[in-house]
């Protein structure tokens, strides 16, 4: 059976909020190392990959592999009841029909208990290869969100170009063109503002802004975001959750016929 108690319960709500507009039904795959999720949007353009490691929970117990087939719209309805400092506990049997979700107030004077019906979801697990990316950019997640949102007002697509001079986000739309360039930036006192660009070779790729803006719904999870690019390879956008738990998005580049 599964029993997992999360003191940073808002993490769960933020993860679900970040992915529910991209994927609707998905399996939360539980095993002794933690809870993982992998789901692709209907158009096969974006892939979500999440791992909440066992050490993010206290206690965490899962004796065998359990797949929790969850409708995220339904889970969102349950998570509405979650309050800021609540502890959340997930419980399920080995072959579960439902997921038991408990919210406890930090003062332990209120316990809310929900059973969420589960579904059978036939999802193929895809192998995501370890990739040596040509460019890796770590930057403030709010900055990335602002750039994507601002450029989306002008165009459907953005070209991301990483060179030794920096990383350039540019778009061309009906009303004109726009571009934002970021350079390496180190702030010793406010490290969360740093822009770190690691480059082995120049990269230029074009992506749909609709999807990037969607990924930015994960911004509340972390003040930093990592963007990894290689020519002709899906873009990786990563938000670290707690410790080494993560939420990753992969996005197919646009290629000219």
């Amino acid at each position: 059976m599964l029993e997992a108690r999360l003191s940073q319960s808002m993490v769960l709500k933020k993860v679900v909020d970040a992915i529910k507009d991209l994927v609707q039904d998905c399996n939360f795959d539980c095993n002794d190392s933690g809870i993982a999720l992998q789901a692709m949007d209907n158009s096969h353009v974006a892939l979500v990959s999440m791992l909440l490691k066992a050490e993010s929970f206290e206690p965490y117990r899962c004796d065998r592999n359990i797949a929790l087939g969850v409708n995220l719209v339904s889970l969102t309805k349950v998570l509405r009841a979650l309050q800021n400092d609540d502890l959340v506990t997930l419980k399920a049997d080995d072959a579960p029909d439902s997921l038991n979700i408990t919210f406890e107030s930090s003062t332990a004077d209120r316990i809310s208990e929900y059973d969420l019906k589960l579904m059978d979801i036939d999802q193929e697990h895809l192998g995501i290869p370890d990739t040596e990316y040509a460019a890796t950019v770590t930057m403030p997640s709010t900055e990335f969100k602002r750039i994507c949102t601002d450029l989306q007002a002008m165009s459907e697509s953005v070209t991301i170009e990483a060179t030794k001079d920096g990383i350039k986000f540019s778009c061309a739309g009906d009303i004109g063109n726009g571009a934002v360039t970021l350079r390496n930036y180190q702030n010793v006192e406010k490290e969360h503002l740093n822009v770190d660009i690691e480059l082995t070779e120049p990269v230029s790729l074009t992506f749909s802004l609709k999807y990037l803006v969607n990924f930015c719904k994960a911004q509340p999870l972390s003040d930093r975001v990592k963007i990894c690019l290689s020519n002709e390879v899906p873009l990786l956008v990563e938000y670290l959750i707690t410790g080494t738990s993560y939420l990753r998005f992969y996005l197919a580049p646009k290629v000219r016929d």
Binding site: M40, H44, L126, G127, A252, P253, K254, V255, R256, D257
Partner: peptide, 14 residues
């Protein structure tokens, strides 16, 4: 026209 790589095919081949 722009063509978007199918991630399913990409990852399944990997």
């Amino acid at each position: 026209a722009d063509f978007q790589l199918d991630l399913y095919n990409y990852f399944i081949k990997s």
